[in-house]
Design a protein around this nucleic acid. Structure first.
Length: 512
RNA sequence: GGGGCGGUAGCUCAGCUGGUCAGAGCAGUGGACUCAUAAUCCAUGGGUCGCGGGUUCAAGUCCCGCCCGCCCUACCA
């Protein structure tokens, strides 16, 4: 049984990470934490893409070598942010590492030997001011460079080409046989339509600059950064170097991508793997753009808010929660400070955090913090249902918003249960029957919280841990991350006698 | 230009193959309660379902036209 392997894109280290990068990376982290709590062998990969002309230029502008520039950004910006956001990746690949560059050369050499790559010439619109080829679609009317507003020249240069055009039929057959390969469906339709319209061969080398992996049989060329970049998914898990590891992990179950790079992953990448005879990934899932005030967050438009600004105000866990809850995964989503605040207050503080508070307070007040035994299982059914729905939504469908919705529906049910049972009134009845009833009610509430902690751990690990400890669960049940999702729905797991303490407030009310 | 998606209550959005589909959450208002982070629970939503036609016994739900927004239309990372 191969590992459940999830990748993020490797991010281009031209600049510091922004909300969009963090969004994808948190989603992958939640997905993989969820699968770990299913007890699966999981591999979560992220990393950085460090070659290419743009990085070379940026480094030059900052007076350092490209490698120095990448080292600095990776160590000072990228890795620290992932640690800050509690990203539990199993590896971090950099495309400048020898374990990558050597294998990329071998991969490309293989394709060359197999006749999948040939030498040809590329003709394209070239801007002298930019010193680079432009994408035809980027040109302004009259073939003007969008940056310099000057006419481009049509230049021709020798390039190596991958015979992508020969894979159209096989790709379409593959999409047909694997309808879930590209998700969401809107993305799939675009990809299928694109491939149907006919594929051209792909230029996979550049000779106008040298910050890249050399083409092994022709060192005047470097490998086009996208071929370089895509292969990280293979080189990072032992392709050509550690066969046992590769066999265990390959292929990816899910490649998470931004929709800007969907085509590379849904068309070029599988074609490359077909050419090499490697198993194809299970899914390519394109998430949408985060919009702030109607404008997308992207590399070219770093308007506004950084991840750290938000975590400083709302906390890391609320940050991880918010974007996945508020935006259906795969769609573009509008984000706003106001909406974040509203969800924080209503869902995290009032519904969830307060539930934990009131239950702990009552067990403390009425039973001196020792969880009594109980026999009321009226919440067992709703819990089981919530677990099943959340597991399908998050674990299978990558519907984080829907999955969190199911978990929080259950949170509401527990609040409602307490309102109906009115344990504070039952507590006045000092008869054995009255006390037994009170015990049952509070046991049911605490047991519900136990399950909620397990279910929310992938999304909000620090908060779930606080709750776990306040329930006294660790002593009896072990570490929270070791709790299995499918066992979370069982009733009666938290043992009588557990020590319940009212810990710190999970989600303090926001100031201002 | 061509293709795709969307325009439903103040806000964010559900509404699959046409007939309790006019809804949910949040916000607002009123009430109950007091264990709790002044939290929770209950009640309360007459909104031209973008506009105009059409098909049908019946249309947010299908067809045509129009308006508005976004996306794709290959080698930008």
């Amino acid at each position: 049984m191969a590992a459940y392997y999830v990748s993020t894109p490797i991010y281009y280290v031209n600049d510091a990470p922004h909300l969009g990068h963090a969004y994808t990376t948190v989603a992958g982290d939640v997905l993989t934490r969820w699968h770990r709590q299913r007890g699966e062998d999981v591999w979560y990969l992220t990393g950085t893409d460090e070659h290419g002309q743009k990085i070379m230029r940026t480094a030059e502008a900052n007076g350092v070598s490209p490698q120095e520039w990448c080292d600095k950004l990776v160590s000072e910006a990228w890795k620290p942010l992932w640690e800050h956001l509690e990203i539990a990746n199993d590896d971090f690949i950099r495309t400048t590492e020898p374990r990558h560059t050597q294998r990329v050369q071998e991969f490309v050499q293989d394709l060359y030997d197999k006749g999948e790559i040939y030498k040809g010439s590329y003709t394209g619109p070239y801007c002298v001011g930019c010193e680079e080829y432009k994408a035809p679609g980027d040109l302004l009317e009259g073939d003007l460079c969008p940056i310099h507003k000057r006419p481009v020249e049509w230049l021709e240069e020798d390039n190596y080409f991958f015979k992508l055009s020969e894979y159209g039929t096989r790709l379409l057959e593959f999409y047909e046989a694997n309808p879930d390969f590209v998700q969401p469906a809107s993305a799939r339709n675009e990809v299928v339509q694109f491939v149907r319209s006919g594929l051209q061969d792909l230029s996979i080398s550049r000779s106008s600059f040298d910050w890249g992996i050399k083409v092994p049989w022709d060192d005047k060329h470097v490998i086009y950064v996208w071929i370089d970049a895509l292969l990280n998914y293979a080189t990072a898990v032992g392709y050509g170097a550690d066969q046992a590891k590769f066999d265990r992990i390959w292929p990816a179950n899910v490649h998470l991508v931004g929709k800007d790079i969907l085509r590379f992953h849904a068309v070029i990448w599988p074609a490359m793997l077909m050419a090499q005879g490697l198993p194809l990934p299970g899914r390519v899932f394109a998430n949408g753009w985060l919009m702030v005030g109607g404008e997308k967050m992207s590399k070219s438009n770093l308007t506004g808010i950084s991840p750290r600004q938000l975590t400083e105000h709302f906390g890391v866990d609320a940050y991880r929660y918010y974007f996945l809850r508020a935006i259906p995964f795969g769609q573009d989503g509008s984000f706003s400070w106001e909406d974040f605040t509203a969800r924080y207050t209503s869902e995290l503080a009032n519904d969830f955090g307060n539930l934990a508070s009131r239950v702990a307070a009552m067990v403390g007040k009425y039973f001196d913090g020792v969880l009594p035994a109980g026999s009321d299982e009226s919440l067992a059914g709703p819990l089981r249902e919530a677990v099943e729905k959340a597991d399908r939504a998050i674990g299978e469908d990558l519907d984080f918003s829907g999955g969190l919705g199911h978990i929080f529906d259950f949170v509401r049910k527990v609040n409602l249960y307490l309102s109906e049972q009115e344990p504070w009134k039952v507590a006045r009845d000092t008869s054995p029957e009255g006390q037994a009833k009170l015990a049952s009610i509070l046991y049911a509430a605490a047991e519900s919280l136990r399950a909620i902690a397990v279910l929310l751990n992938p999304v909000m690990p620090a908060t779930a841990e606080k709750l776990w400890l306040s329930l006294g669960a660790e002593e009896h049940l072990g570490a929270l991350p070791a709790q299995k999702v499918h066992e979370a729905g069982r009733w009666g797991v938290l043992p009588e006698g557990a020590t319940i303490t009212k810990g710190e407030i999970l989600f303090p009310r926001l100031e201002g």
